[in-house]
């Protein structure tokens, strides 16, 4: 009697974990822990409005890392972004550039990395010097409007 109930309860536990496994396999991405397997790079931007911590970093649209932190540099008033990038993509050339991009027309912001062609690589903890700040739709519209006013 004990044995049969033990078996059924064991079955129940296994069954619950199979459900969890199905969710993990079919209905979600088991993201690698970048914090453990990644290395850090920095970049300074004039404007990163709309970019959040945990925003993805992509090369050619494929995710290679996440934004770990964003802080304001006290002297230059630039935004310093710390990125954690998968160690598989360790060899980024020195002239690599990074830009703030938007998913779709109104979507959330992410960082798009464009690898350069230099033979030297950026070391872990180094800085990507070429940055393109975010282009906000509001500012563009604002500029357009003022230019119309100027023309008048």
């Amino acid at each position: 009697m004990h044995k049969s109930i033990n078996f059924i309860v064991g079955l129940f536990v296994v069954f619950a974990f199979i459900c969890l496994g199905m969710v993990a396999l079919r209905a979600s991405t088991v993201e690698p822990m970048f914090q453990n397997q990644g290395y850090r790079l920095y970049a300074r931007f004039d404007d990163i409005s709309g970019l959040n911590v945990h925003a993805p970093i992509r090369i050619a649209g494929v995710k290679i890392g996440v934004v770990e932190s964003i802080e304001l540099l006290p002297k230059s008033y630039q935004a310093k972004v710390t990125m954690v990038i998968d160690t598989r993509f360790k060899n980024l050339p020195i002239d690599t550039s990074v830009s703030v991009a938007t998913e779709g027309l109104l979507g959330s912001k992410y960082l798009e990395v464009t690898p350069g062609f230099d033979d030297g690589f950026i070391k872990s903890g180094g800085e990507i010097t070429q940055t393109v700040s975010s282009i906000s739709l509001e500012k563009l519209i604002g500029k357009l409007a003022t230019s119309f006013v100027m023309e008048k």
């Binding site: 969710v23 993990a24 079919r26 209905a27 979600s28 991405t29 088991v30 993201e31």
Partner: peptide, 19 residues
């Protein structure tokens, strides 16, 4: 249906916190 689920949901930050 399934690929949208798979791409949009993160196991460690959406599923595990619920559990």
């Amino acid at each position: 249906f399934w690929s949208n689920l798979k791409n949009g949901i993160l196991f460690y930050s959406d599923v595990l916190p619920g559990l």
